[in-house]
């Protein structure tokens, strides 16, 4: 991974990185990339792609409402609320 590619990734992730961080992280990212690339040496001919190791049946649920009983604790976990709205700095 090149440094400018890393800069694009950081921008998309809204991360502000110092020059030192960029250098350090791009090196680590490259190590990870190489590790993942090593998987490409596996022989996958005639193998159907899967998303999971073992899928024996469809995992679906009926279209039924089961309200979550403790909604207010989810609101309480917020830094700031306005009535029942989560409140954050303007991001428009």
């Amino acid at each position: 991974m090149e440094q400018d590619e890393w800069a694009v990734t950081a921008e998309l992730a809204a991360l502000k990185l110092s020059e030192g961080e960029k250098k350090r992280l791009v090196k680590q990212a490259e190590q990870m990339r190489k590790l993942y690339l090593s998987m490409s040496s596996a022989v996958v001919d005639n193998l159907e792609p899967t998303t999971h190791a073992s899928v024996v049946k469809n995992r679906v649920r009926k279209d039924e409402v089961k309200p979550f009983k403790d909604v207010d604790t989810l609101l309480d976990a917020s830094n700031e609320l306005d009535d029942r709205f989560f409140l954050i700095p303007n991001v428009l």
Partner: peptide, 23 residues
């Protein structure tokens, strides 16, 4: 649908904010 796509929260419109939510 009655419920959301990936969880059983209600898919009803017009309810009070943040009432049909779950983890």
């Amino acid at each position: 649908t009655e419920s959301k796509m990936f969880c059983p929260c209600s898919a009803h419109y017009g309810d009070e904010p943040n009432t049909n939510i779950c983890p």
